[in-house]
Design a protein around this nucleic acid. Sequence first.
DNA 1: GTGAAAGCGCTAACAA
DNA 2: TTGTTAGCGCTTTCAC
Lengths: 336, 336
Amino acid sequence: MVTMRDVAKRAGVSIATVSFVLNDTKPVTPATRERIELAMTELGFRRNMVARALASRRTRIIAMAYPALDHRFGFSAAEFFTSAAEAARQQDYHLVLWPVGNDGGELTELVGQSLVDGVVLMEVQLDDPRIAVLQRTRTPFALIGRTTALEGLTHVDIDFDTTVEDAVGYLHGLGHRRLVLVSGDLADPRFHTYGPYVRSEAAYRRVAAGYGIETIVLECSDSTRAGREAATRLLRDHPETTAVLVLNEYSALGVMSGLNRLGRRIPDEISVLSLMAPDTAALSNPELTIMRTPGPELGRLGTEALIRQLEGATPLPPPHLIPAKLHLGESTAPPP
Amino acid sequence: MVTMRDVAKRAGVSIATVSFVLNDTKPVTPATRERIELAMTELGFRRNMVARALASRRTRIIAMAYPALDHRFGFSAAEFFTSAAEAARQQDYHLVLWPVGNDGGELTELVGQSLVDGVVLMEVQLDDPRIAVLQRTRTPFALIGRTTALEGLTHVDIDFDTTVEDAVGYLHGLGHRRLVLVSGDLADPRFHTYGPYVRSEAAYRRVAAGYGIETIVLECSDSTRAGREAATRLLRDHPETTAVLVLNEYSALGVMSGLNRLGRRIPDEISVLSLMAPDTAALSNPELTIMRTPGPELGRLGTEALIRQLEGATPLPPPHLIPAKLHLGESTAPPP
DNA sequence: GTGAAAGCGCTAACAA
DNA sequence: TTGTTAGCGCTTTCAC
């Protein structure tokens, strides 16, 4: 292995000088810098990140902690990850996806080993135990999602209020007055404090009340099967419904599939609108009209916010909340 | 931060002894071991992985290198990752998903930094440039997928021969004689040496010839949209087709959707069979019959093979090739 | 069975 | 502008 010592010897300088050009931490005359750089390429030097990390107490690794066992890794999550990794790379950090449990145990282990400089937390619960872990261990972190108590926490999230307002406004504008919200299954312990469901549902109740339309909410697990089953319940219990708003991407595909099976023509007889990533929307038939989850923006923003924190820079100014925007598909139309 | 030195002082032993109990590298009397363990819990000691890595020249981190920009991260990939991470954890390693480019550049950087002990390579091409990088840098690695030249490379992969035999055999057994294979887009530079397509297609030609049925192959990109478009081509150019075998999960969903749109009843008029993960199969309508990609097994096997290599253990005995097994859905039936 | 001490490759004072 | 040097926290010989 070629070390800085080798480079220094070859360039006829001290190891410290090599460090200075590598990190750009002190001025070095162009001549010596050039000699050092030449030596580095000649020798094929690659700096040892582990040694650097030990000496500087920074690894330049950011972990995106994903609760692999409790949430399936869907398209939206893939968007978060890809964009976050890209943002990190641009700032000379490595961002890796680190599967951890939802209870905080594995996260404790991870951050206790001082292997990562910071953590981007995905799928945050309203009272997430992992946040206590990060605070206790004084690990810098950023949230994609929000807890209930947000004081001082670096976070980015979907603006559910605006999103739901826009979604319902759009359907209302088309003439729909009999809507149903298909939310998550709040009885499921994994989700009963899951922000996206809780906040969207609250926003929906508020917005629906504002329009003076009846508020009907169906609960539904995050699976296609559950979505299909929800479609059955929907037609049985609320046959007069003309439009459905679905929060989960898997549920939405199931609702589409279920309505199709039951012979409802979409969008002629019933409209469906869902919060999801565009890749997913293309999977249904007809193609879904969606409120597009701002995955790329959130992944990038979250990572940038964390890195600013790591480098002691001034916090990123707002916006921290990004609304999902309407993308027209083929699943919405005026009511029959 | 609590260091081994603190623990040693508190337990009244030397730092070396602490290391011995931590790593179980030398015999220690039960009495002192107990004192040390007590001290560790009292102090809340957590070993610093970075220091350990520097001293031992092993990080116990395995990177699963994923060509994030060239391949979308789908359900099958998620299965690989989850099971691989689990297998690593059981052997006290960390496995993280590391997004890298397909050309080997970023991979060079990653392994040059001696941050990871080994690499699990996904989405391997038949002549993958990344493999040269790993060999040149003497990085231990395992492949999920196969190159053309395999001498001495640790790898696991789908047994495409058996898989295609079983798939075609199943359709043939149902009575189908007019089949079409929807393969990848070999004109796309990302895929023209992509093992799964190349091997499956070769196997298909062989098996079809064996049954004496005409060999028709449609090329199709890895997207739902492309799949839909392939369905159109299929019905236009080969209207007599009674069964379709699709290799890519996204394409398959698109083919289903496309056939649905064009008014073909599945499976009454045409059967569809695809190679994919069961989660994905549930997304289509009707639910797809699949050859289930052995993601969990491959992820686990690949990781275990790599770890054995890292620890100098004897290589894992075969099987290295796992066939996908038939999972009945609702998209296949005898021909009309 | 336990301890002393020499690194692992690098960073960052401090000195020159 | 450049060099000297003391760590970073741990592993691992080699003595005892």
